[in-house]
Amino acid sequence: MAAGGDHGSPDSYRSPLASRYASPEMCFVFSDRYKFRTWRQLWLWLAEAEQTLGLPITDEQIQEMKSNLENIDFKMAAEEEKRLRHDVMAHVHTFGHCCPKAAGIIHLGATSCYVGDNTDLIILRNALDLLLPKLARVISRLADFAKERASLPTLGFTHFQPAQLTTVGKRCCLWIQDLCMDLQNLKRVRDDLRFRGVKGTTGTQASFLQLFEGDDHKVEQLDKMVTEKAGFKRAFIITGQTYTRKVDIEVLSVLASLGASVHKICTDIRLLANLKEMEEPFEKQQIGSSAMPYKRNPMRSERCCSLARHLMTLVMDPLQTASVQWFERTLDDSANRRICLAEAFLTADTILNTLQNISEGLVVYPKVIERRIRQELPFMATENIIMAMVKAGGSRQDCHEKIRVLSQQAASVVKQEGGDNDLIERIQVDAYFSPIHSQLDHLLDPSSFTGRASQQVQRFLEEEVYPLLKPYESVMKVKAELCL
Rank of each mutant, 00 (worst) to 15 (best):
E464R: 05
D216P: 09
L222N: 02
C98R: 12
R194I: 05
I105K: 14
V219A: 06
L53S: 08
Q409E: 10
I351M: 15
R196G: 10
H86W: 00
R188G: 07
I249D: 04
D178H: 03
T382G: 06
M76A: 12
T202I: 08
V363W: 05
T154M: 12
L53D: 00
V115S: 07
E417F: 11
T382K: 03
N68Q: 14
I105L: 11
F36R: 08
D268N: 13
Y21S: 00
N297K: 00
E48A: 06
A78S: 14
M76S: 12
W175P: 00
C340L: 10
P318C: 09
P298V: 04
L352N: 02
V457Q: 03
S448G: 15
R33I: 10
S447I: 14
R329D: 01
L108R: 01
A342F: 08
I62R: 06
S9M: 15
P435Q: 11
I238R: 01
D216A: 10
A344V: 03
A291S: 05
E81Q: 09
M26C: 06
T154Q: 10
G288N: 02
L155S: 01
F232D: 00
V364S: 05
N185Y: 10
D441R: 10
Y294K: 01
L152K: 06
D430P: 05
H442P: 08
D430W: 07
T38N: 05
D430R: 06
S447H: 15
D6N: 11
D420V: 04
V88E: 01
H107D: 00
F433K: 03
Y466H: 13
R188N: 09
A102N: 06
G200P: 02
E48Y: 04
I72Q: 10
P153H: 00
Q325M: 13
E213R: 15
A235R: 09
F30V: 12
T313V: 10
G203V: 01
K170E: 00
V92K: 02
R85Y: 12
L444V: 07
L444E: 03
V198G: 10
K415P: 04
R194P: 14
R149A: 08
I385S: 04
I436K: 04
S323C: 09
K367L: 04
V115D: 03
S31P: 00
V251I: 09
F95Y: 12
K147T: 12
P133Q: 13
P100A: 10
E60F: 09
F74T: 15
A143V: 07
G259Q: 00
L346H: 13
A136S: 15
L69R: 07
A163M: 00
P16Q: 15
P24V: 12
I424L: 14
I369N: 09
R194V: 05
L84F: 07
P281S: 14
S323R: 04
A18R: 08
L193F: 14
D87I: 00
D332V: 01
I373D: 01
L128T: 13
A348V: 15
D349Y: 06
M389V: 08
D349E: 08
L258P: 02
K391G: 15
G96C: 06
D191F: 07
L46P: 02
M316A: 09
E464H: 05
K284A: 10
A136G: 14
R20W: 00
S289N: 00
V254S: 11
A291L: 03
Q161H: 03
T202D: 07
T167V: 02
F433R: 03
D87N: 02
W326V: 05
G451F: 02
T239W: 03
D120H: 09
A392F: 07
E401H: 15
Q286C: 00
R245S: 02
M65R: 04
L341M: 12
L346R: 06
E401F: 04
G288L: 02
L319Q: 03
T227W: 06
G259H: 06
C399K: 04
I373K: 01
V251S: 09
R33V: 14
P56S: 11
L271C: 07
K82T: 13
G240M: 05
V251T: 14
L255A: 09
H159V: 01
K82G: 14
S9R: 13
E481Q: 15
T267E: 04
K199D: 01
A344P: 07
N357G: 12
V475Q: 14
D216I: 07
V363A: 04
G116Q: 13
N421E: 06
E360M: 07
R374D: 07
F345C: 12
V92P: 00
L484Y: 15
F36L: 13
F282M: 03
D192H: 10
Q356A: 14
D59Y: 11
G109I: 00
M299D: 04
S15E: 11
P467W: 08
K224P: 06
S412K: 14
F236S: 09
Q164Y: 04
H93Q: 15
V247P: 02
F460V: 07
V405E: 12
V247L: 14
I106Q: 05
T242E: 07
V465Q: 06
E279T: 07
E79P: 07
F28R: 08
P24T: 14
E343N: 14
T313H: 08
D11N: 14
D398C: 12
V92H: 00
D216E: 10
R371G: 04
H217W: 13
E70T: 15
A273S: 13
R372Q: 05
A103C: 12
G116N: 14
R337K: 12
Q439M: 14
